[in-house]
Structures are given as structure tokens and as C-alpha cells.
Amino acid sequence: MNIFRLAGDMTHLLSIIVLLLKIQATKSCAGVSLKTQELYAVVFVTRYLDLFYSFISLYNTVMKIIFLLTAFTIIWYMRKHKVVCQTYDKEQDTFRVLFLIVPCFVLALLVNHEMSVTEVLWTFSIYLEAVAILPQLVLLQRTKNVDNLTGNYIFMLGSYRALYLVNWVYRYFTELGYRQWIVWVSGTVQTCVYLDFFYYYVQAWRNNERMKLPG
């Protein structure tokens, strides 16, 4: 494992911790899209089915379990926690997730490495992760004002993907025969989804003001 991959994973983990801390400390999930969180849960469940039949490293196993547990913890807070669930912007969070899930699934059936249940589900998780942030970005666009923690959460999620891109370039030059087109293309799309957000995030940071998205 190279430093870019590790930095990417740590940024991913940190983004989730930031979101959980925001929810726990402020007892509020205002501005957080439950749809996106549920999509991430679907992504992790379909991707980490290999926990049952393949072992890569203790690091991999532990991280997978953490990602699964934290995803469901966030969903639990937003759906079941007495105080937190009342702060959820349900009326604003209306993205039709089936418009993401169905095309990703069809694409996974058409473009995959191997026509097996676990491989198709794994491929589906790769495609779905690329677009899973969209309900969150749409919610942000609607509520306009982005609180710092939510902004940092999304910024870190985007950074994690950007670090993975660097990791792939590094692996391409250091590992003989290493290539994974499905992951590369999806990952590039996924990183591009954040570009607009990055622009406004950096702008707010440079001007030292609260982040605001244009109408």
C-alpha cells in the first residue's frame, strides 16, 4: 500500500468521523442528506460482501467493518434518534435515488469483469459510489448556506477520491500489469462530481467567509 492510498483512506475515515461528530455534538443533521447516507450504506454492503470469502489484510478487514458500522450508525441517528431525526430536512432531501440505483445496476450487468453475483454487485457498488454524493450536493444547493462541518465533510470526501486518483497513477507506474479500468473511469467521474463544490469551498476559505452556493 502506498502513501496516497493510505492518505485517501484516512481522509475518507476522517470525513465520516467529522460527520458523526457534527451529528453527536450539535444533535442535528441539518443539511445532511439521508439519501446519500443510505446510498453509501448500499455501496458498502454490496462491495464488502467479500468479507465473507476473501481476506486481503487485517487493515482491509477492519476498515471495511468500520465503514459499514459508521454508515449504519449515521442512518440510525438520522432516522431513529429522538432529537437528531427532527432536524432532518426531509422535504428538501427529495432526490429520486432509483434514478441512480437502476442505471448503475444495469451498467454493472453490462460492463463488468465477470458475470457472477458478487462481481456484478461489486461493480455496481463502484458505479453507485461515483454518484452517491449527488443527493447531498442537491440538498446543499437547495438549502444554500453550508455549515462548516457539512462543508468539511464533503470537502474531505472529495479529497479522498482525488488521493485515490494519485494512488492509481502511482500503482500504474510501480506495479507490473496493474490496471483496473472500471475503477479508474468511475473514480475519475466521481472526482469530477466534486469539482464545482471544491471551487466554492476554496473560494469561501480564501475569502475567510462562510461557504455559500450560488442560486
Binding site: 467479500d50 476473501s54 486481503i56 482491509n60 494512488n167
Partner: peptide, 10 residues
């Protein structure tokens, strides 16, 4: 067909 890459990334 290309060999399946082991999914060693998260």
C-alpha cells in the same frame, strides 16, 4: 478476457 483484478482497495 482480462484477469479479474483482486479488489484490494476500499
Amino acid at each position: 478476457s482480462s484477469p479479474t483484478t483482486t479488489h484490494d482497495e476500499l
